[in-house]
């Protein structure tokens, strides 16, 4: 079945395999560089996130792609949609700011902000989600939503929900990379 491919593989030799490996590595490296570069530019640990829950419907649905920024000097305002991560919780949450309180902090011109958030589709505010904290602080916030693309991120949700799909896709891509000659 694979005799043809094997023959081709022998003919092309070791150098070709190395070249393929190098190509592969450079694709991965440039992807990582773009991601980390974006992170530096936007001052956010994850500048692009996929919506995982329906708590912001009808504004955002599962699978929507959000673009975040988090400038260090900027205040947050009511109505801003933030992505925050509570220490100990593994999933970041996308919710809207409901209350802001600027507490003057000593020795710093930027006030220490305390925030309270709520999902548009939830009846009550997020205190229950804060794991004992009574408000959010700046350090919990990953970024502010600036722009948005509908449903593009659904692929990642599908891959999480159906792991078979992920393996099929990875396997298929790997096989193609090995077989293809060009």
């Amino acid at each position: 079945m694979f005799s043809e491919e094997l023959k081709a593989f022998r003919r092309l030799g070791f150098r070709h395999v190395l070249l393929q490996a190098l190509n592969f590595a450079s694709v991965i490296a440039s992807g990582l560089m773009i991601w980390k570069g974006l992170g530096l530019l936007t001052n956010s640990e994850s500048p692009i996130v996929v919506v995982l829950s329906g708590s912001m419907e009808p504004a955002f649905y599962r699978g929507d792609l959000l673009f975040l920024t988090n400038p260090a000097s900027e205040r947050y305002h009511n109505g801003d949609i933030t992505v925050y991560k509570i220490p100990g919780a593994d999933i970041p949450i996308v919710h809207r700011v409901l209350e802001t309180h600027d507490v003057k902090s000593r020795g710093s011109s930027v006030p220490n902000q305390r925030l309270l958030t709520k999902g548009d589709n939830n009846e009550v505010n997020d205190i229950e989600l804060y794991r004992g904290l009574s408000y959010l602080e700046r350090k919990h916030i990953v970024g502010k939503v600036r722009g948005f693309l509908p449903y593009i991120g659904y692929v990642t949700i599908a891959m999480n929900d159906f792991p078979q799909l992920k393996y099929a896709l990875l396997g298929g891509l790997g096989l193609l990379a090995l077989i293809q000659r060009e």
């Binding site: 305002h77 009511n78 802001t100 309180h101 003057k104 006030p111 548009d120």
Partner: peptide, 13 residues
């Protein structure tokens, strides 16, 4: 106390 506050009291979609 000099704390600047801003609170959403009503909203609508």
């Amino acid at each position: 106390k000099g704390v600047k506050n801003s609170v959403v009291i009503w909203d609508r979609i």
